[in-house]
Design a binder for these strands. Structure first.
Lengths: 346, 346
DNA sequence: CTGAAAGCGCTTACAG
DNA sequence: CTGAAAGCGCTTACAG
């Protein structure tokens, strides 16, 4: 028995095996295991003991076939190697586990073909709901996802639809605050490096930046708008371009930390010191932000909590309980050493 | 119909629905969909067309109930927010997707209670195999995992068992090379900051460090062995302690990049400049290593490829094809700016 | 309180 | 080439 049990691909005990051992019908076993009030407490205890002894594990497949619930949620990320996504997924897995849901994780790599495969896999596995962590969810992708006919929660994005909730950060307020921080330090030539794909978070962060400048009576110059792509390389080249301007900015607010890391690298490559020659602000507060050179001033997003909240939101959608469809979390400006007053007079 | 289809939780078309539409038995539909040679090509085409038109998606649950294969692999990580794990999982998901497997992701958080839950979930979902990405897989955990009666691949760890393969980096050679790099630069007082839990990778890396010192005729001093825990905080406190020594080391080889980041922070907190006053070498080459202050010299692990390889190894185990049980990948020393010749004479 | 029966959506021998 | 039947492992009305 022990020998057999160690082998791989043994047939697992089924409800029928337990029934035989317990001398009852398999219906009774099923009820006992589920704690039905129809079964006497002694029988329940006895049957559960037998089940435990024989290492019984209910088949999720069989159960979901009859209940038409898979107790599974599908999570798509553009790339799990993106630290932002990884933190969010941690929160999602955590909350899902607490509710006895399993997480099926898929990477889309921002490739339409992969996105299709992912949705198909989710459909075949009959996931109860889907969480999408990506700042770029185009109309086509959203349409595709909605074909799964299950509730969807978008993280860092939004889509007006009855079965699509969203969890986002207060982009506008947070960005305004970040930009204000630079203004307060005395900066007048403040650039923004965004995401050239123009996703919703980018649009909102850009608006926050603009509104802070406006409120301070500062001009909004198009040459101070750089276009990255959310990655370090994107930030690097956008920053490089900004630095070729006759009157380069003395401070930059970046769409996210990755972009900021790239901007730092570009500045360093040109011999600029941060924050003496250039102040840089990021967005996310990735774990690494504190280890950057110098430690990065940034807007902290409660990534894990956002993941947890996405699960809660999804469960509400599944239960049909009315809740806020578009949840907004506050961001928090974390001032570190990448920002300071400008040294030269503009 | 379109209205209905947009709703959530619609009953999906089954093989029977297609059968009705096609005027054949559901057996025929099943065969046609699977491309059985028993069915005429025209019928296959016709039935597939109908299936596609009605948005049919086979139920993975029903299929796995009869085939007793779930086409699913369970992946446990200690924390998906660990960048190393995230990169590995990316590779895993990628390879799994190519082979039409889905990935069920679970975090164990190094908590025994969570580990039990994870194994149970994997058992209930009848995953076909398991990949464990964690440098610390104790005997208890391994025993627990093996109760799932499915093949297991350990990443960054090893366990002698017929149904447990492993994928690791050439720790010994890589660590020897990293230490040799410091010796070549002229360092004589070289410390090692390991993982105090003494996992296999730590033991091997420590051995590589020792063997390089020995080969160079340098003494191995116990006071130069620091104990971290794989995180930045662990590296920070271990480094801090090393720096209180009367004759502190001029170079440190760290168990991993996270530990190295912490060590850098500790050194900076004491006003030491890197690499002028202290050289630091990490292990992993996390994405951020190049953005550290200064960019970190480290041993690159091909994390994504290791993840892919783990899937291949698992599939071999599933297919019963004989293969190397313990795969070793080479590491690559990446020299950046955190290492230089020692400035003072020891 | 307990059991026999039906059914969830598939696959696959077994007969035609 | 096609269909009727059995069965995978559960849940749950329906009868006792």
């Amino acid at each position: 028995m022990t020998r057999l049990e160690r082998q791989h691909h043994v047939r697992r005990a089924s409800i029928k095996d337990i029934a035989r051992l317990a001398n009852v019908s398999h219906s009774t076993v099923s009820r006992a295991l589920r704690g039905s009030s129809l079964i006497s407490p002694q029988t329940i205890t006895r049957i559960r003991q037998i089940a435990a002894d024989s290492g019984y594990r209910p088949s999720a497949a069989a159960r979901s076939l009859v209940t038409s619930r898979s107790a599974t949620i599908g999570v798509v990320v553009t790339s799990i190697a993106d630290p932002f996504a990884a933190e969010v997924v941690l929160g999602i897995e955590d909350a899902a586990d607490q509710r006895d849901y399993s997480v099926i994780l898929a990477n889309s790599n921002a490739q339409p073909e992969r996105e299709m495969r992912v949705v198909r896999a989710f459909e075949e596995r009959r996931v109860d709901g889907i969480i999408v962590t990506s700042s770029r969810v185009g109309a086509v992708y959203a349409e595709l996802l909605s074909q799964a006919h299950v509730p969807i929660v978008l993280l860092n994005n939004q889509h007006p639809s009855e079965f699509m909730h969203s969890v986002m950060i207060e982009n506008l307020a947070a960005s305004r605050q970040a930009t204000q921080h630079l203004i307060d330090l005395g900066h007048r030539r403040i650039a923004y490096i965004g995401d050239r794909f123009g996703c919703q978070s980018d649009t909102e962060r850009f608006s926050g930046y603009q509104s802070a400048l406006e409120a301070a009576g500062l001009p909004i110059l198009t040459e101070y708008t750089g276009y990255g792509n959310g990655s370090a390389d994107g930030g690097d080249s956008a920053m490089s371009e900004l630095l070729t301007l006759p009157l380069p900015p003395t401070a930059v607010f970046c769409y996210n930390d990755m972009t900021a890391f790239g901007a730092m690298r570009a500045a360093a490559a040109r011999g600029l010191r941060i924050p003496t020659d250039l102040s840089i602000v990021g967005f996310d507060d990735l774990f690494f932000a504190q280890f950057a050179a110098p430690p990065l001033t940034t807007v902290r997003q409660p990534m894990r909590d956002m993941g947890r909240l996405a699960v809660e939101s999804l469960l509400h959608l599944l239960a049909g309980t009315p809740t806020e469809a578009n949840l907004k979390m506050p961001g928090e400006l974390i001032v570190r050493q990448s920002t300071a007053s400008p040294q030269e007079i503009a």
